[in-house]
Design a protein around this nucleic acid. Structure first.
Length: 439
DNA sequence: TACGGAAAAG
DNA sequence: CTTTTCCGTA
């Protein structure tokens, strides 16, 4: 049922923005993208002197810009690559929300994903864990996502999502998700593919991982054994039971590994200065995720709350709902509004919005009309709008927004609605969709 | 050092 | 589309 998808997603913290789903290497995938490359370097301790997690959660510092640029150049077969160019590419991620700059800190950028999934789903292996158990010295950067390495793959709990969420709680739209499927096919990956010596370092280590067979504690993330129907599942892994933190893991201690009493403290280290704004944070005892024993416990009520909170946080952290869209059958529960149908009337948004022009890149500004584009229904009709919360001067303005994308038609993204995060326990969210355009 | 426009490339 | 390349501005 759709539930399995949804459940899986929620459960595994699959609510990453779509960019986070691109597999490191998948057949037919495209060229590797910079953000992914950065992630690769970050998870390998051999590059810790060049680039490493540092600072706030999700923050990383490029210690040696020239080297990073060089490596990138090697990977992309662009010998002329330099930090200036690389950084330009990085800046293009700002609007995409993949990254943002940590102002005041030189060469420091921050990934936009952590707050949510990583914080709430510490047991998910995003592939950030190093594969080199030895050598973990130094203080663990809190900036690194909590990634216990090793562990079993997620399994659906004994109860189905429907046990937790009633149908009407779903935010569901068949058309909405229709286009999603095709996106699944999109890959992103890597290899310059020439296999030349040029791809040395990074490539080499990657290859090593990539060619490794069979799931193991050290399996590189992004490549776990595939679960049926979930092409990307390899990206994340769930750790149902406590494990000993891996030395190399960015995190000193895996939240999951700790005894219940320690859980709370351990969850936070990852996000020291960044408030989570969760309406509900699963406690060791309450959280269905908590591996109090060897298995999950699923208290319907808790689960329900958990899921709701999670979903809410997904939006709060502006992880684009697009993430959900990858799964045609998934549905998003409406946070804090369990009993109501999800479709919010566009006319009555739960929040105050400030209309803002879409973060158009120049590309959108000047969009030559395309003759004969059958799919271009969007251009004329629905205006693209981006809504931004009026008030929310948070330290993390961006992260506090709710972002919604409408994909009623094709795939796409850019029409984004943002709603302010509702502090405390207000009902949150969401979104809804409006027109969208094809990119 | 950082940002972002422009245009080109793949 | 994403990234590369170039560049003016702050």
């Amino acid at each position: 049922m759709y539930n399995s998808f949804f459940f899986f997603i929620v459960f595994t913290g699959f609510a990453f923005p779509d960019w986070a789903y691109k597999p490191e290497s998948s057949p037919g995938s495209r060229q590797i993208q910079l953000w992914h490359f950065i992630l690769e370097l970050l998870r390998k301790e051999e590059y810790h002197d060049v680039i490493a997690w540092q600072g706030d959660y999700g923050e990383f510092v490029i210690k040696d810009p020239d080297e990073v640029a060089r490596l990138w150049g090697v990977r992309k077969c662009k010998p002329q690559m330099n930090y200036d160019k690389l950084s330009r590419a990085l800046r293009y991620y700002y609007n995409k929300r993949i990254l943002h700059k940590t102002k005041g800190k030189r060469f420091t950028y921050k990934f936009n994903f952590n707050k949510l999934v990583l914080v709430n789903y510490p047991f998910i292996d995003m592939g950030m864990a190093g594969k080199y158990p030895q050598n973990n010295m130094g203080p663990v950067p809190q900036s690194a996502p909590p990634v216990p390495s090793g562990g079993t793959h997620f399994r659906f709990p004994p109860c189905t999502p429907s046990d937790v969420l009633s149908p009407n709680e779903e935010l569901r739209s068949p058309t909405l998700f229709s286009s999603v499927a095709r996106r699944l096919a999109r890959g992103s990956v890597s290899d310059c593919s020439d296999g030349t010596s040029a791809n040395s370092e990074v490539e080499e280590s990657l290859s090593e991982e990539q060619h490794r067979r069979g799931p193991g504690p050290d399996i590189p993330a992004f490549r776990g054994p595939p679960l049926p129907r979930l092409p990307h599942e390899g990206i994340f892994r769930v750790y149902p039971r406590p494990r000993v933190p891996e030395p190399l893991s960015p995190f000193p201690v895996s939240p999951m590994a700790a005894p219940s009493g320690l859980l709370p403290p351990q969850l936070s280290p990852a996000l020291p200065m960044t408030p989570t704004h969760m309406n509900y944070t699963p406690s060791p005892t309450l959280s269905p995720m908590y591996p109090g024993g060897s298995h999950f416990s699923f208290n319907p009520e808790d689960m329900k709350r958990y899921l709701q909170a999670h979903t809410q946080s997904v939006y709060n952290y502006h992880l684009s709902p697009r993430a959900f869209l990858h799964y045609p059958s998934i549905v998003v529960p409406q946070p804090q509004r369990p009993e109501k149908p999800l479709h919010l009337p566009p006319e009555e948004p739960p929040f105050k919005f400030k209309l803002q022009p879409p973060p158009l890149g120049k590309k959108q500004r000047e969009r030559p009309l395309e003759p004969g584009s059958s799919t271009s229904s969007s251009s004329s009709g629905v205006p693209q709008i981006k809504v931004e919360p009026i008030s929310d001067a948070e330290e993390d303005e961006e992260d506090l927004m709710v972002e919604v994308t409408d994909i009623s038609e094709e795939e796409d993204d850019e029409e984004v609605f943002k709603a302010p995060t509702v502090p405390e326990q207000k009902p949150l969210l969401l979104f809804y969709l409006a027109g969208k355009r094809k990119q």
